[in-house]
Design a protein around this nucleic acid. Sequence first.
DNA 1: TCCAGAAGTTACAACGTTGTAGAACGAAGG
DNA 2: CCTTCGTTCTACAACGTTGTAACTTCTGGA
Lengths: 337, 337
Amino acid sequence: MAVTLRDVAELAGVSFKTVSNVINGYPHIRPATREKVERAIAELGYKPNLSARSLRSGRTDTIALAVPELNLSYFAELASFVIAAAEEAGLVTLVEQTGGDRDRELALLQSPRLNRTDGLILSPLGLGQEDAPALGGPLPVVMLGERTFDWPCDHVTMRNVEAARAATEYLIASGRRRIAVIGENEAEVMGSARLRLRGYREALAANGIEYDERLVARATLWHRADGAHAMHDLLDRGVAFDAVFGFNDTLALGAMRVLQESGLRIPQDVAVLGFDDLDEAAYAIPSLTTVDPGREWIARTAVETLLARIGREGAAAEPRTRAADFAVIERESAPPA
Amino acid sequence: MAVTLRDVAELAGVSFKTVSNVINGYPHIRPATREKVERAIAELGYKPNLSARSLRSGRTDTIALAVPELNLSYFAELASFVIAAAEEAGLVTLVEQTGGDRDRELALLQSPRLNRTDGLILSPLGLGQEDAPALGGPLPVVMLGERTFDWPCDHVTMRNVEAARAATEYLIASGRRRIAVIGENEAEVMGSARLRLRGYREALAANGIEYDERLVARATLWHRADGAHAMHDLLDRGVAFDAVFGFNDTLALGAMRVLQESGLRIPQDVAVLGFDDLDEAAYAIPSLTTVDPGREWIARTAVETLLARIGREGAAAEPRTRAADFAVIERESAPPA
DNA sequence: TCCAGAAGTTACAACGTTGTAGAACGAAGG
DNA sequence: CCTTCGTTCTACAACGTTGTAACTTCTGGA
């Protein structure tokens, strides 16, 4: 059925190993031979069987990317960058959705699927310190997200704490004092929610503002609906606030919707600030002031780091952590001071 | 390094083929033997080498999904559904981005990458009738999008024309007469833009409203920025309109932003209607009236169709086209009559 | 008791590729 | 003219799995 090296070899009148050598760029081949072979390849439309190649060589030229959900814009945009960066490096990307569930994340790490893969870029939500052994396998793993645990793998992270602190200080500098936050999730041992909350508290402390628990609204998932729901909670509770910091843009946008429905003006009555700088943040009404966490850099760096780890010599190197630069993007929902 | 069938067989004290038989559910195996083998598998943590399995069996249990860009919310949500449906069927999904570019779509179809795949779900933008031969290969392909060409493969589609017509008629029924559209793209031979435009024109014709070219705004890409840009165009041109039909939600949301900036009230001055029913449509201010094209059904059906085609007997069957049901989702940006 | 057939297990041969080792060839040096 | 050495090509043996076919071992019926 399919054309193999042997078929090409026969047509070109050489041994099939010579064809293999041509394909793999083996240097000692006469130009005439190479040309004969290439002509035969073109004529037959030969395509190497990648399963056979992987079996023999151990390389798959495939990476896996595991994110909680692809329909969260943040992860969609991240995936888009990762796939593009992988493609540039000649790799294809297998996308898995974990739902942010620890069991599914663990199952994935054990899964035979991954042996058709050279490495994994994982954006974990559920894993904890006790899962370190699961990461000790032979498969190179690059974690996205703060190095909150001592895992034996590379990390590429955003500066959650610093960025949340900077965002909060930005609000404080613009004169806000009662700053609500949306997105806290105590179930997460040490995920973004915890870190961003910490940054928020640091900023308050540094500015002599007391931390008020009533201003903290929970949201286990970070969809729009969760942001809307959390904002309803805040309003129902009747606590006064003059700003809202959503732990991601989606939450902030959902919250903004509810604020406007209830007649509050943004930013006059309440300033709103998000986190992620999604495409849609710029087009919301009002446009959303937010934190650009350096998504593209993170994606490119993750692929690069994984690639380095895959290379023979990289396997032994010490785990490395690299953090992206962030920036507060000033827009209408929270104008600068 | 890795554990193989042989290692398991040795520990269990059987031939390695018996282990293979256990794994593949071969029926004639004594319970005692099966148990011995399973214990050995568990003890050694054996995982089958999927490359070897593919090489031998020809199956890869992997499908490819190719979309223009994953950071367009529509495709992100679609991909999310496809990956989930594939996962349920025990398949992993390889995601490719084509940029909607004909050359890249063609290159993908020729690519050896796909031979590590059992089939492809393709959301094409650039391909035309002349590319039919490229689809005649041995790889099963399911096309997403209207069957506008006579391609030798299955199609799973949304009812672009009917849905656009229904959407336009919805606007007409609510009293609008000067309905602008955003998203036309004459470069596309027969893509969604053309089809939705046709539905729009059919609705106008059916209601005795004359088609006015000045109400048509182009947008080659369908990002937010393109919708904003197109709306600027319309406003600059100075044509009067009392409604806007964006060919997708993203365009509509971008347009809505510009409308509001320029002081027009939605829906009092201008009604806005989108297409796709993205998550964000419900949380925009005002919430966006839109068309739900049946994305989840499309994703599930695409996987199902591909699976049927992959099965031995399915290969010969006639190409099939299946269309999703749609619905106009009434929200604030364009209230019902 | 023997035989037929089913149940349970195994041996062998692929699948298509690449790594290793070495053979054949030609050119250069003695 | 023979040797040596680099260049160019080839033969062989894996990689880990599954399909085929055959070989044992049981079971039940005559």
